[in-house]
Design a binder for these strands. Structure first.
Length: 565
RNA sequence: UGCCUGGUAGUGUAACGGUUAGCACGAGUGAUUCUGAAUCACUUAGUCGGGGUUCGAAUCCCUGCCGGGCAACCA
């Protein structure tokens, strides 16, 4: 590292370099590849991106940016049976939305011809052969961790025969599964991936980009490193499970004598109370246990976006969690705090009553409506003020009234006085109940001298509560979200047990009776907003004319809720 | 049982053989407050165990324990 030249050094990073960035910094300092840095983000278009991908995106694009390099977006589309254009498009949307712009946009399928030619080269070098066994036979010969594998009876076919068969595989002369191309490495290697790994398989499937041009497709291990090499990727960053693949990655590049991209592995992100596997997320979508990939409970980028997460919050989160090889479990509150911290600065405040109960202010003129000034964002003077209508009948939150308050309860109760935010002090005089004994209405009086919320006599109230004017408020549906899963660590679900049993049945609560202050109608455009004392919210796309729908992005911290536990 | 990896407060991380082992989140206490929010201050708590090497070890070596990964014609 060069703390060497303090004079014209850029602002020092607040954080020390993570081990990947350190590797890059060392390479640059050593003048490797002339100091050029090239990374890539290589998703397979077989699902939507999730927050774990965001970690990788921030890393790869971040490195390129910080070291004056470039980062490509490359679709790893070597398996036509699982990949779709829908995913290609969503991935591009999500990467852009996160705030990154790729330099090159590529597909592994762009390289099929080159990859094929290199496969012929491996055959000619005697390093690859066509195996005509079934997958079961090949699998059985692979051996076990303790027992070496055994050679395929086809392992010593001549170069000419291999070449002929491989070319005919390409031409489509054989059905799926009839032959595969394998590398000839070492059936006794302790690393299974070197026990003559498959390079190509026959798949007479329609590819989302190459159509029916090909009927043989390269395997990941054969395609990935060579694609990196073609793009002159200097640092190929991937997750830990590919660690064991590195020797094969290096083997291909070395035998082919092509640009030496190098692979480095970091730990993937795990978050509490959610799932982070494309397979499981797809399962949720297909089983309709969520409304889609963008269900706000999903940890997908589009789900988080719909939930009200901002790119800034996600990027800040990714910067906070660090990059290591330790396979940990990050607490969901870290993500939530990243959002709170971003939105606290930029979300305007409004009042909304989620579970309303009516309050009648007995000494307030029934014909009167006042417009009261309210601050839009105490954290941002630029946000200005607005006017909120006040009248004799208002709604407050059911949770803000208790007929028999427990110790430590500051809010409204019989005989107690609270402040209505930006309005008046009110004191509860009585309650009205129905036959069942349910409170249907709260009666109160207000103190005209406290207009605006300040008491001239200096008397204090313990609580300030939010409210809306019953005659002016607009109804809305509000959706509250909780953890997708009941348990913290989904990886602890034993094999053979359905992980879906751990889904949280209370992950979605729909409140259809909410009442909003009138100015909230202008938030239908999707700007984030804080409902005072409740949390951050965002309008949902399900809204229709006359029917607003808001999603709760995240609650505010709530010391009272915590105290009650 | 083989190979590869990893193990620092509750959680996520920093330390590059040389500080009283730092930071963030959480938790707790207090101040402040027209959001039980935010903000501010303080407190809490850690090098997986055992051996070695060294003047000095979280760091290097050995060993044990624990976690993760690896035997798809998936990526």
């Amino acid at each position: 590292m060069s703390a060497a030249e303090p004079n014209h050094a850029p602002a020092p990073a607040e954080r020390p370099l993570d081990f990947i960035r350190q590797i890059v910094a060392d390479a640059v300092a050593a003048g490797q590849h002339g100091g050029r840095v090239q990374t890539r983000f290589p998703p397979e278009p077989n699902g939507y991106l999730h927050i774990g991908h965001a970690k990788s995106i921030c890393l790869n694009f971040g490195i390129a940016k910080e070291f004056g390099g470039k980062c490509n977006l490359r679709f790893d589309d070597t398996n036509p049976t699982t990949e779709e254009t829908e995913y290609v498009e969503s991935i591009q949307d999500d990467v852009r939305w996160l705030g990154f712009q790729w330099d090159g946009l590529f597909y592994a399928s762009d390289y099929f011809e080159q990859l094929y030619l290199w496969a012929e080269k491996l055959i000619e070098l005697g390093l690859a052969y066509v195996d005509s066994q079934t997958s079961e036979e090949i699998s059985q010969q692979r051996g076990t961790p303790q027992i070496p594998g055994t050679h395929s009876p086809f392992r010593d076919r001549s170069v000419a025969e291999n070449l002929d068969l491989f070319r005919r595989m390409r031409k489509g002369e054989f059905p799926d599964g009839a032959h595969v191309l394998r590398a000839k490495i070492d059936m006794a290697s302790p690393n299974f991936l070197l026990r003559d790994p498959l390079l190509y398989r026959i798949k007479k499937a329609h590819h989302h980009r190459t159509g029916d041009t090909w009927c043989i497709y390269p395997m990941y291990d054969y395609a990935h490193g060579q694609s990196d090499s073609i793009e002159q990727v200097t640092h190929s960053v991937c997750t830990l499970e590919f660690d064991a693949h590195r020797p094969l990655y290096d083997w291909c590049i070395e035998k082919l004598g092509i640009f030496p991209s190098r692979q480095h592995e970091f730990a993937r992100l795990n978050l509490t109370y959610t799932v982070m596997s494309k397979r499981k997320l797809l399962e949720l979508v297909q089983a309709k246990l969520v409304s889609g990939w963008d269900d706000p409970r999903m940890p997908t980028i589009c789900g988080l976006r719909r939930r009200g997460y901002t790119p800034e919050a996600i990027r800040a989160f990714c910067g906070e969690i660090g990059i290591t090889k330790y396979n940990g479990l990050t607490d969901m509150v870290v993500l939530e705090n990243a959002l709170r911290s971003d939105l606290n600065k930029k979300a305007e405040r409004r009042m909304a009553v989620l579970k309303p109960i009516k309050v009648v202010i007995e000494n307030y003129d029934a014909d009167l409506t006042e417009q009261l000034d309210a601050v839009n964002n105490p954290e941002d003077a630029e946000a200005g003020t607005r006017q909120v209508p006040f009248s004799r009948e208002i709604y407050i939150e059911q949770d803000d009234f208790m007929e028999e308050p427990p110790k430590g309860y500051f809010r409204l109760s019989p005989g107690k006085e609270v402040r209505l935010r930006w309005a008046y002090f009110i004191k509860c005089t009585s309650v009205v109940k129905d036959e069942a004994g349910q409170i249907t209405e709260i009666r109160a009086t207000y103190d005209p001298a406290t207009r605006g919320g300040d008491s001239p006599d200096g008397r204090k109230v313990k609580a300030t509560i939010h409210w809306v004017s019953a005659n002016h408020s607009i109804p809305a549906e509000v959706r509250l979200y909780d953890h997708l899963c009941k348990i913290e660590d989904l990886s602890q679900v034993p094999d053979g047990e359905d992980w879906k049993n751990q889904l949280n049945p209370a992950s979605l609560t729909v409140l259809s009776e909410a009442q909003l202050e009138p100015s909230l109608s202008t938030f239908a455009d999707g700007r984030p907003v804080q409902f005072e004392r409740l949390g951050y919210f965002v309008a949902d796309k399900d809204a229709e004319p006359g029917k607003l729908v808001f999603n709760r992005s995240v609650t505010l911290k709530d010391a009272w809720a915590k105290a009650k536990k």
